[in-house]
């Protein structure tokens, strides 16, 4: 469903993403892990079309993002880290605007009530976004991602700022989407969540892919059987830092 090949992205003299390749299949949740500055957010922003890669190919549902941008974007939904919605729109207007952007205004009236109820936004429906708390803004961003029938979900730290009930609901929602056949790429620092939620994880460091695979595969690579994802993550990133080189992809070496 989502295929990224040899992605490169630099900002002036800083290479944020350095030859990254990854794929997410339909009905799969993939975690994108890495220390701060590893290039996770830049990767997600390149995939959702906010940033243009210097090189590489991004294929979404069979559409090449560089050549068939509109078709590819129609299949994606992006949940940003610390979303900054339009403060001078009301909650309802904000969701309506996103529906208009994706050309789904015809089904908007049917979906809006359900979305407002599902994300506890009903009471705030006619209030300006400026008056919402950080957690409510996050919920609004999530609700906006569900306005159109996306097949690929790109989530950049989606659980930050949401209360435990909201976190639980969002995780259930992501699992439901996976069961419905959507492809989900989640960038997160919460390793215990990634361990429970993701089918597979990709560990990034300095713009490169450090390791990729299921927890069992990563444990094998780190030679840490029965360890948690956190322990494996720390070992792999520390080793890579010490060696100054990137360890080869577990999945690739296993093949």
């Amino acid at each position: 469903m989502l295929e990224v090949t040899n992605l490169y992205k630099s900002f002036r003299n800083v290479r944020a993403v350095n030859g990254l390749s990854l794929h997410v299949q339909a009905g799969e949740i993939v975690g994108l892990l890495g220390p701060n500055g590893a290039g996770k957010t830049t990767t997600l922003r390149c995939i959702c079309g906010i940033l243009r890669p210097d090189a590489g190919q991004i294929i979404v549902g069979g559409y090449d993002l560089a050549k068939q941008e509109q078709q590819a974007k129609r299949l994606m939904a992006f949940i940003p880290e610390t979303p900054n919605p339009y403060e001078l729109l009301t909650v309802r207007e904000h969701i309506q605007f996103v529906a208009m952007c994706y050309g789904t205004i015809d089904t908007f009236r049917e979906r809006i009530e359900e979305l407002l109820q599902r994300f506890d936004l009903k009471e705030k429906e006619h209030e300006l976004v400026a008056t919402l708390s950080k957690g409510m803004r996050q919920k609004l961003a999530v609700a906006c991602a569900f306005v159109h029938n996306a097949k690929v979900f790109l989530c950049d730290e989606p659980l930050i700022g949401i209360d435990p009930k909201g976190q639980h609901e969002l995780k259930s929602e992501l699992q439901r989407l996976r069961d419905e056949g959507c492809a989900i790429l989640v960038s997160t620092h919460q390793l215990d969540t990634a361990e429970r939620l993701c089918d597979r994880v990709i560990i990034m460091q300095a713009g490169r892919k450090l390791a990729e695979g299921t927890l069992a595969e990563l444990q094998t690579q780190a030679q840490m059987a029965d360890s948690t994802l956190e322990q494996v993550f720390l070992r792999l990133t520390e080793e890579a830092k010490d060696a100054g080189a990137v360890v080869s992809d577990v999945a690739t070496s296993g093949q």
Binding site: R74, A77, P83, P85
Partner: peptide, 16 residues
């Protein structure tokens, strides 16, 4: 341009 544009408008299928 605001962060709201980046988060909600730019990822949408509107023409760049």
């Amino acid at each position: 341009f605001t962060q709201a544009d980046v988060h909600f408008l730019f990822p949408s299928p509107q023409k760049r």
